[in-house]
Nucleic acid binder design. Structure first.
Lengths: 248, 248
DNA sequence: TGTCTCACTTGATTTCGATCAAAGTTGTGA
DNA sequence: TCACAACTTTGATCGAAATCAAGTGAGACA
């Protein structure tokens, strides 16, 4: 999940085709080698389900490329996204062998996987990895709680602005803005997926995006390509504190 | 936070006047002794703030008695509770020295505290404690995500029923029901605190509690004392799956 | 080239919960 | 015993987002 700037939810997987920090800078190289030997890749098509809630899940994984969602569903079909997995995010829970959520690829998705048993064994022998995982989990918890404030108290417009700001921020750290210093990105989610994330309906998402466009807060090219002419302006719409928050 | 049956968010603190499991059953006794030497107690009155978001926080703690809330507040005063601390719950984050949320006592509250630095040192030397903390944090994350579904997708009535079910379940594990096998408990929160937890207004909370009472789902004695004549009936109102969920 | 589908937009109407307002209840302390 | 403060309930009205209902537009494929 990527609701904050300082998300560090990733596991090193050696030569994965993305640049990411190591599990722990202090790890010896033979530990990294162990990780290297354990890993394997899986690829999913857009729309494909990685795993269903309740299924046996005998691996943990790190997103290499693409985007996946974690969702919970009620019997009557109401669904709520509870996490968004972007490249370098981690999924899976040591000590539990059932998936707690539906995991779905929303774009073509490559994950770097580790079978759970040997991964857990290594965690036992390598305290750094466990500590790293704790740090990552605490970041996720903060992100989840930030999202609780959004779901419980923000207006539809604030919710959309917050989501756009998060995607923009996350994206900007990769390929920084365009030539005029504007932040530019493609929405990686359908209107429906956004609605499920924000606790809204897809119609409301559509209307609010149109409203932000009409008010000049964002520019839209096609349905997915977004330009933010003034990031400050967008941040004002989120309802959040202007400063970076308490996250050090 | 206590949204599930299997919450294990607590740290052993020796002779605290509550029965609770050890940090880790495998810990040697001299580790427990270390914990014992490090700990100290603090007590707060109902309504008192334990710590403000952003404040320096140089301790971690476990609730011994009473109830505390974790809340986030927007500049304009909208507030969302993001966690409820019941006896045996843990608060504080190793590796961060600022509080991320306001922590407030809603009843008279006793906490068993450990100064952060020595606690972290011990964590380094005692992998079990770190692993225990990871487990606890993952439980909290699950609880937070369960709450996201509630905030994003449930109706006011379902929200109230869910909160009552959680308190009933948690309470029932301590002092099991009354003579007729009904679940009986006292609401530990004001209507306003419930509203902040559920993303509602206090008026809506009041109305929905009245409605559940009118419909015979609960009985009320005074404003706080609740009797649940038929737990199944209450669970039906929550919108959740009837089975225990995926949490093993 | 057309048509089918999927994602999205927009409009009309409804509804649930928020807001505004006024009482009722309980406990505390003078 | 009274007064008042804090908490709660209930009523009337409003409004934001949901729902219901047509649409548009773009890509896929026959």
């Amino acid at each position: 999940m990527a609701l904050q700037e300082n998300v560090r939810t990733h596991i090193d997987c050696g030569d994965c085709p993305i640049r990411h920090r190591a599990v722990c800078a202090r790890c010896e190289s033979d530990e990294l080698k162990l990780l290297e030997e354990m890993k394997y890749y899986r690829t999913y098509e857009a729309g494909q389900t990685v795993i269903w809630s309740g299924d046996k899940m005998d691996f943990v994984a790190s997103v290499v490329e693409g985007i996946a969602t974690l969702t919970q569903t009620m019997e009557d079909g109401r669904t709520q996204m509870v996490g968004l997995l972007l490249p370098s995010d981690f999924v899976g829970r040591p000590g539990r062998d059932q998936a707690a959520y539906d995991v779905t690829a929303t774009t073509r998705l490559t994950m770097c996987c580790f079978r759970k048993k040997p991964f857990e064994d290594m965690m036992m022998n390598t305290p750094h990895i466990g500590q790293r995982l704790l740090e990552m989990t605490l970041d996720e918890l903060d992100a989840a709680r930030e999202w609780m404030l959004l779901l419980g108290r923000k207006t539809a417009r604030e919710k959309i602005a917050s989501l756009l700001a998060i995607i923009a921020r996350r994206d900007a750290t990769l390929k920084l803005s365009n030539s005029r210093g504007q932040v530019v990105f493609d929405l990686p989610l359908t209107r429906e997926a956004m609605a499920d994330y924000l606790g809204l309906t897809l119609e409301t998402v559509s209307r609010q995006i149109s409203a932000l466009k009409r008010d000049g807060v964002i520019e839209l090219e096609g349905k997915r390509h977004v330009t933010v002419p003034d990031m400050e302006r967008l941040l004002d719409e989120t309802g959040d504190d202007t400063d970076g928050g308490v996250f050090a």
